[in-house]
Simulated assay, not measured.
Amino acid sequence: MFVHPGLCIRRFERKYLLSAVLQFMVRGPDSTALQHQVNQAMTQALEILGETDGVDYQTQQYNVHPVYSRRDDPETLEQPIWQAQQSLRLSSLDSPAVLAAVAELQAQGLQVQHLGYSLSPAAYRQASESLLEAAIASLQRKAQQTAQLLDKQQAEIIELSLNDGPNPGLRAMSMARTSADSAEMATPVAAPGRTTVTVSVSARALISP
């Protein structure tokens, strides 16, 4: 006997992890000078984050490459404009700390590429384990009900298939590009809203007299 999947859904409004990805990017004819600017900017960014309590961070891709406006122009090919960039990611359960750090980094010339919430790993694990228990109990009841309809005495689940999706995230919040020359950078705003944790379980049951 195949028991139809048991699908359990719950929504959580707390225990969100706020993550942000920021990038420093410059363009110009001298690739060495551009890399120097990137190195300086990222050093300052890491100094800011090093003084921020409760925020995890890591540097990400560092890339330098030519940008061609016209590939059919020999002068452009010989003297290209270079683009240098590096990004970093920060995250924390302390949303105000992340938002304050993002504002400081924006004031230093970094641009936000992503700002959004996801359920924290611990909260997601707790939710999925709770849902799994409820889904299996539901399948057991369905199997026993089917056995009774068939005038049988026992229904035993002999195989389970679990579809536990990845930790869901909310839609990323795009931030407008702001000049680093601004006298004061306003702190960005983020609201977690809701997210849904889904666990789907299917089973095979052996019905016996």
Rank of each mutant, 00 (worst) to 15 (best):
A84Q: 02
D151G: 06
V38W: 07
L131G: 01
P188F: 14
Q61H: 10
A190H: 03
Q113W: 06
D56Y: 12
L150G: 02
I136N: 00
M175L: 14
W82H: 07
E51T: 08
E184A: 14
T196N: 07
Y117K: 00
R89V: 09
A176N: 12
S200C: 13
N63A: 01
N39W: 13
E78C: 04
A134Q: 15
L162N: 04
L132R: 09
Q144Y: 14
P188V: 10
Q111K: 04
E13T: 13
T32F: 13
Q44T: 15
Q106C: 09
A190K: 01
S179D: 14
A135I: 05
L46M: 07
A33R: 09
E133R: 08
S182F: 06
A41P: 04
Q111P: 08
S161P: 05
M175N: 06
A172I: 09
Y57R: 00
P209A: 11
K142Q: 09
L34V: 06
Q106D: 05
L150P: 06
Y117M: 00
A122R: 03
L93K: 00
E78P: 08
P96V: 08
V201E: 03
A180R: 05
Q126M: 05
R204A: 12
L34H: 04
Y57C: 02
Q79F: 14
K15L: 06
S138Y: 14
M185H: 06
A134T: 14
M1L: 14
D94T: 00
E129P: 06
L162P: 01
R10H: 12
S200H: 14
G109A: 01
L46D: 02
F24A: 01
A103F: 10
D94Y: 01
V21C: 06
P188C: 07
E129Y: 10
Q85K: 02
Y117S: 00
L132T: 12
E51M: 09
E184Q: 14
Q79E: 11
Q126L: 07
N167A: 12
V197G: 06
S19I: 03
A190C: 05
R14F: 11
R204I: 13
I157E: 03
I158D: 05
V189S: 05
F12W: 10
S208A: 14
N63R: 05
T32P: 02
E133Y: 12
C8P: 12
A180E: 07
G28Y: 02
G109W: 04
S31E: 10
V55T: 06
A33D: 09
Q37I: 09
K142L: 08
R171Y: 11
G50A: 05
Q58K: 09
R89E: 11
A190T: 04
S91M: 13
S161Q: 13
V55A: 02
R27K: 10
R14A: 09
T187Y: 12
T59I: 10
E104V: 12
E75V: 04
S31D: 08
I81P: 12
A155Y: 00
Y57E: 00
A84I: 03
A123W: 08
T146W: 15
A147N: 00
A191E: 15
A186E: 03
K142P: 01
S91T: 15
A100Y: 15
T178I: 11
V55D: 06
I207F: 07
A45P: 08
R141I: 11
M173I: 15
G54S: 05
E104G: 07
V67Y: 11
P168N: 02
D151M: 04
D72V: 07
R14Y: 12
L93F: 04
L77T: 00
V64M: 11
T178P: 04
A147I: 02
L77F: 02
Q35D: 14
R204D: 13
